[in-house]
Amino acid sequence: MSRKKQIIVPIVILAAGVVSFIGFQSLKKPPEEKAPVDNTPIVAVETISVEPMVLEVESYGLVKPKYETELVAQISGQVVELSDTFVRGGFIKKDQLLARIDPNDYEAALIDAQANMASARAALETERAQGKVAEREWERISHSSPTELSLRKPQLAQEIARVKAAQASVLRAKRNLERTEIRAPYDAMIESRNVGLGSFVAIGSPIGKVLGTSIAEVRLPVADKQLKFLIDQGKDSQVLLNGTYAGEKMQWSAHIARGEGVVDNQSRMSYLVAQVDDPYRLQASENSVTPLRFGSYVTADILGQRLDQAAIIPRHLVVNNAVAILDSELKLKYMPIEIVRQDGANVIVSNGLAEGDQLIISALDYPIEGMQLALPSDDAIESDLESVETQLAATIED
Results as ranks from 00 to 15, higher is better:
residue 259 G to C: 12
residue 260 E to V: 05
residue 260 E to M: 13
residue 263 V to Q: 09
residue 264 D to R: 09
residue 265 N to H: 15
residue 265 N to A: 15
residue 265 N to K: 15
residue 267 S to D: 10
residue 267 S to V: 10
residue 267 S to A: 11
residue 268 R to N: 15
residue 269 M to E: 11
residue 269 M to S: 10
residue 269 M to P: 03
residue 270 S to R: 06
residue 271 Y to S: 05
residue 272 L to H: 00
residue 273 V to Q: 00
residue 273 V to W: 01
residue 274 A to Y: 02
residue 274 A to P: 03
residue 275 Q to C: 05
residue 277 D to Q: 12
residue 278 D to C: 11
residue 282 L to W: 07
residue 283 Q to C: 01
residue 283 Q to H: 07
residue 283 Q to W: 04
residue 289 V to C: 06
residue 290 T to W: 01
residue 291 P to H: 12
residue 292 L to C: 08
residue 296 S to A: 15
residue 296 S to G: 13
residue 300 A to N: 07
residue 301 D to P: 11
residue 305 Q to G: 10
residue 305 Q to M: 14
residue 305 Q to S: 13
residue 308 D to I: 08
residue 308 D to K: 11
residue 310 A to E: 03
residue 312 I to Q: 11
residue 314 P to F: 06
residue 314 P to V: 09
residue 317 L to E: 07
residue 319 V to G: 01
residue 321 N to Q: 15
residue 322 A to T: 09
residue 323 V to I: 13
residue 324 A to E: 07
residue 325 I to P: 00
residue 325 I to N: 00
residue 328 S to Y: 10
residue 328 S to W: 06
residue 328 S to M: 10
residue 330 L to P: 00
residue 330 L to F: 05
residue 330 L to S: 07
residue 332 L to T: 10
residue 335 M to L: 07
residue 335 M to E: 15
residue 336 P to S: 02
residue 337 I to F: 04
residue 338 E to S: 06
residue 343 D to G: 08
residue 344 G to E: 05
residue 347 V to E: 00
residue 347 V to R: 00
residue 348 I to A: 01
residue 350 S to W: 02
residue 350 S to I: 04
residue 351 N to H: 14
residue 351 N to S: 14
residue 352 G to K: 01
residue 352 G to M: 01
residue 354 A to S: 15
residue 356 G to P: 03
residue 357 D to G: 01
residue 357 D to V: 00
